[in-house]
Design a protein around this nucleic acid. Structure first.
Lengths: 241, 241
DNA sequence: GGGGGACTTTGCTCTTCATCAAACTCGCGG
DNA sequence: CCGCGAGTTTGATGAAGAGCAAAGTCCCCC
């Protein structure tokens, strides 16, 4: 994928097309976008790298250009759980939107990723200057809040198998790419990761995936999952047996 | 408590002091508050009454004046879980702030309650006109998001006893009132309610409370709980045994 | 090409907690 | 003052899934 256009100097310059298609910026003029880009810092993160950490000073906000992120919380006891995933085109680390001074969770690159970021003081500029930017951001926040509530209720009421099925489906919906076999989750996921999304153990997840594989619902290799019969998973997650 | 001051006519008129102390309105002048109040609808809800329901059109936003609310989500299967509690002085039902057109959860009065509300179209007026209103609202939202994430991680990683202890502590912190015996939760809570907060059953909660009562940590009667040894509960919820 | 580490699988045991069942108690309305 | 219903208590049972152990497999890096 092409993200960077080399300028005459050997300093890479970001291309306007990066932002023009994304909701938070879609109504802006080219010069506006140019200005926003010129204020941004672009950076690459390799798989497993931390973008920012829970509790640290929230001095920048981010936009994911390419890759996938996990947003994670850790308990004092060291257990961690994955609160949500971020896909390309989404804003994240937008603590400033909520008047927070620290990040409420940690972001980790689930795959090699590229993100733009801006210093937090620009947040109020952006929302004040660019019509629709604030609106879109809050919409994002709203749906994210909804997602988390959804996860919470699942966690509280559903048995492990349903939760795991729901988690897999959520990843498929967010990042599924069609293959000849079925729909593949576009970023690396370990059994451990799934257990961190569902509050169970990697053992249990492994058993479930094995069972589903036998039943012809999924195919999986290391860190990769292809869902061949999504409908079956929906059935499992609904308990509509 | 006195909330209503009767005007010359027999139409009740809301007193400015209602709002002047609350963060979202604290920087406003009296005439501004007067105007806000005049646009508000005030209403009483009895215990168990529904203020609004998940999925319904979000046509108003609210401020709780007195009482306590439970914010609840229900699964297709009929299980419900309590996402958070609202105390007096807090805004709620602020779906408009997130550009949502429907409420993401249901609000139920945990005790007899009084709330003000405004039509959703005023939201943009408020945020545009009154400096600090938006800021405060988003701060509220931010801390609420944090709370839910907190609950989620607990739910995913902690054993039942810790979760229940944490839930009781959260209620105590939010609405505890000192009594001669200890700190009392200020609104009615059933075992069932607590189990709905923690994703367990009323049986398990009952057993735990009985055990804690024997250990001298709490005293409880029907729908009411007094914590006599908060520190012990903290110990239980941390696992710092 | 051959470690070696990271990821996965699988079996077994044991705890926790949901579920079922039944009795008890409080408080309210008739 | 009685009876009913909502809330609570307690016991017994069983199943789900965590924890522990150990071996297998893939992939990356040297």
């Amino acid at each position: 994928m092409l993200f960077i256009k080399l300028a005459d100097q050997n300093v890479p310059k970001l291309d306007e097309s990066l932002l023009s298609g994304l909701p938070p910026f879609s109504c802006l003029t080219r010069p506006q976008i140019r200005k926003i880009l010129d204020q941004a810092r672009s950076r690459r993160y390799e798989e497993g790298a931390e973008i920012f950490r829970e509790g640290h000073e929230a001095d920048r906000f981010f936009l994911l250009l390419d890759g996938y992120l996990r947003v994670v919380r850790t308990t004092p006891g060291g257990d961690q759980i994955i609160v949500l995933h971020i896909s390309p085109g989404q804003l994240f680390g937008i603590a400033p939107a909520l008047q927070r001074e620290t990040y409420p969770a940690t972001s980790i690159a689930a795959a090699e990723s590229i993100a733009l970021s801006w210093p937090v003081r620009l947040w109020s500029d952006f929302t004040a200057t660019y019509e629709g930017f604030a609106t879109e951001s809050y919409k994002t926040l709203g749906s994210r809040l909804g997602q988390i509530q959804q996860t919470l209720t699942e966690m509280a009421t559903q048995a492990v198998e349903k939760r795991v099925a729901a988690a897999v489906l959520r990843m498929v919906n967010q990042s599924g790419r069609k293959t000849d076999k079925g729909i593949e989750i576009a970023f690396p996921v370990t059994r451990q990761n799934i257990s961190d999304m569902t509050g169970t153990t990697l053992h249990t997840v492994s058993r479930l995936l094995s069972a589903w594989e036998k039943a012809g619902i999924v195919e999986s290799t290391r860190k990769h999952i292809v869902v061949t019969a999504p409908h079956q998973l929906v059935v499992i997650s609904n308990g509509t047996d």
